[in-house]
């Protein structure tokens, strides 16, 4: 067992996971807002935010798919030690983590059923940048419109067309997090989108 397997978890799990959850919840409730979350120091290549989301939401009840480079011994050992989450392939996971390219194709993940649309995967997308600018977002949680740097537009449009089925996305970069639930309508920037700060609490 590597030393980093044992380290990098929450020092005070109950409090730090509560605080991190509020950040993730606010992000999911207000698509386009970018928030800081902290607490976990996972092994590379995971970002602090992705590690914090995993520790906050995953446990033995949630199969996790490690995509691409995230599927390494260091991450496997760390996730198992700190969450007990079993590993799974993309078609059986509740959570997946990786870069956009590594997570694709999206068609293999669970999108829920008509009676239980909540039984769908949540994808944690590691991004090289995460700012409140770029594609235009509209829908629940957004007063008029908001903006977010997204890896691409069309995939989210396809996902939204599945509503109420579909995938939900948590975007991570460094210690920041944003979210794109299936309810958000994403379109190419119309030039009038505003830039929101990356460091909101």
């Amino acid at each position: 067992m590597q030393a980093e397997t044992l380290s990098g978890g929450f020092a005070d799990p109950a409090i730090q996971s509560a605080q991190a959850f509020r950040g993730v919840m606010e992000a999911m409730a207000r698509p386009g807002t970018v928030r800081s979350i902290s607490g976990a120091t996972p092994p590379a290549p995971l970002s602090g935010a992705a590690g914090t989301v995993l520790l906050t939401l995953c446990d033995p009840d949630t199969p996790v798919y490690l995509a691409g480079e995230a599927d390494c011994d260091a991450v496997r050992g760390w996730l198992a030690f700190h969450t007990g989450a079993p590993l799974a392939g993309p078609s059986h996971c509740m959570f997946a983590v990786g870069t956009w390219d590594q997570l694709n194709p999206l068609s293999v993940y669970k999108i829920g059923t008509p009676e239980y649309p909540d039984r769908s995967a949540t994808l944690i997308v590691e991004c090289t940048e995460l700012t409140g600018s770029g594609a235009c977002l509209k829908g629940p949680g957004i007063k008029t419109s908001s903006a977010l740097s997204v890896p691409e537009v069309q995939a989210f449009q396809h996902n939204t067309a599945l509503f109420p089925l579909g995938l939900d996305f948590i975007l991570t970069c460094g210690n920041t997090v944003a979210a794109l639930p299936r309810s958000t309508r994403v379109s190419e920037a119309d030039g009038a989108t505003e830039v929101s700060s990356c460091t909101l609490p």
């Binding site: 996971s17 959850f21 993730v24 909540d118």
Partner: peptide, 29 residues
């Protein structure tokens, strides 16, 4: 426990809240 419930129960409820927010008005078990 902090806020009475154990951590695993809170995680389960938190996951349900996120799905509820993603599907407004839908009842998550």
């Amino acid at each position: 426990n902090f806020a009475y419930l154990d951590e695993q129960t809170k995680r389960m409820i938190r996951r349900a809240i996120l799905k509820g927010l993603a599907i407004p008005g839908y009842q998550v078990p």
